[in-house]
């Protein structure tokens, strides 16, 4: 019961830019600003994969990142959630013809998708908040 409550109010993020144009990352930085204030929901950006609950991934996954993203995904402790931010992370976007993998879903499972080029900060916060209840569900499944 306590754990279920705490899970909702203490979420740690790890933001990974896999070779995007920075647009999504700038909007994630704007989420920290007092106007949007992501910390009021109990969400903290730490960029440390070993203590993260949610992996936020932006960018079209360039070739050097393919192995690194898999390593990062394994470093995050269970239960974990992957949020793909922006058109590039969903499908490769405008860089689909370049030296990119195109879509993070090809290598790791994605739970929440936030489309847009780039999505607004309010949309990013909404997407992350909607994914929080998945954490508790995943933990239940783990116990079984």
């Amino acid at each position: 019961m306590i754990k279920k409550f705490v899970r909702k109010r203490s979420i740690h993020l790890c933001v990974v830019n896999t070779g995007g144009c920075n647009g999504c990352d700038v909007e994630i930085v704007s989420c920290l600003a007092p106007r949007y204030d992501i910390e009021q929901y109990g969400i903290y950006v730490h960029n440390n994969p070993r203590e993260a609950d949610i992996l936020v991934i932006s960018g079209p996954t360039t070739l050097p990142w393919i192995d690194r993203v898999k390593e990062l995904y394994e470093k995050v402790p269970e239960p974990k959630i992957v949020v793909a931010v922006g058109a590039c992370a969903l499908s490769g976007g405008i860089f689909k013809e370049g030296h990119v993998l195109g879509g993070i879903e090809k290598i790791i499972p994605v739970d929440v998708k936030i489309p847009g080029c780039p999505p607004r900060p309010s949309e990013i916060i909404e997407g992350i908040l909607k994914s929080v209840h998945l954490l508790a569900e995943k933990e239940k499944r783990l116990k079984k």
Partner: peptide, 23 residues
Amino acid sequence: MGYVHRGIEKIMEGKHVHKGLYL
């Protein structure tokens, strides 16, 4: 470096200016 190399100049080649503008 090399983590963000997408080959953007190569994608632009052979495309129209209107598409190049977005890239």
